[in-house]
Amino acid sequence: MAEHTSTQAGDGGRLQAVLSPEDEAGQARFDEIIAQDSRIEPRDWMPEGYRKTLTRQVSQHAHSEIIGMQPEANWITRAPSLKRKAILMAKVQDEAGHGLYLYSAAETLGTPRHVLNEQLLTGRAKYSSIFNYPARTWADMGAIGWLVDGAAIANQVPLCRASYGPYGRAMVRICKEESFHQRQGFEILLELSRGTAEQKKMAQDAVNRFYEPSLMMFGPPDADSPNSKQSMAWNIKRFSNDDLRQRFVGMIVEQAKVLGLTLPDPDLRFDEESGKWIHKDLNWDEFKAVLAGNGPCNAQRLQRRREAHEDGAWVREAAAAYAAKTNEKAA
């Protein structure tokens, strides 16, 4: 899953200095490919801003998959039936797989995985804020699947057509698996909602906690997201934050009815005149605070990742040493 990532190249990614003839030809070719809505591949010339924007977006997306494993892994050992345990294990394992595809896609832009990992471990790279909230109950497995993965799909389906080839192709595969994830989350909630009074309460509580953060996964309102424009010009982003949020709200309103649960948004309504969903004002101060590191689980999530990395150092060293010795012998 990914959250909105901003772009910072406000000048169209063009270099300010005078371009060399090679760069000029490269830029012209790049512009032509973008104008044709065709694909940029790793060996193609691309503006530095485009490369940087994508490296940041794809690696943030990868980090989100890896950190996003934690809240769900929290319930694997306590899953209340063996079937649910198996499904949850498969899901969290899928997320590790998504992380891998995405790190590979990011690597094609020139930054190796260990550098990206270092950025995550040192807190310099961002990941989706929503994973900085705790998964307190089993129903959170449902709410995360339904709302968080649901929002991720709404974000990611258009990314299957992102102009950067390796990213778009990774997204095609990821979206297929995400749709299964969203479905299993929905099923968990449906089962709880139709279950005992305690189970239904658990489900409603989880939806109450994840509703607003999931709406914020699309990023700030368009008016506060000046960099989205460049990303759209480069055919990375296809829809604005608010458009995607609208589509998502429209979908979950109907699905909530089937679930027999309510969305914690008494003002929520479809405005016929504007053709838009009117939802509550989202708490962007909290969003910024969590993004800045003040969420309930930021420290815990990073600590866990660092621990796994540090505890595994001797294993990776052993594998590298073994490979080196084996290569020596072969040589």
Partner: peptide, 22 residues
């Protein structure tokens, strides 16, 4: 084995140990 998922030395091992557990 399932405890290892999200705690393994490499992402590849999160996947491998998770797969074996599954």
């Amino acid at each position: 084995l399932s405890w290892w998922i999200s705690r393994a030395p490499e992402i590849e091992e999160d996947i491998a140990l998770g797969n074996i557990a599954l």
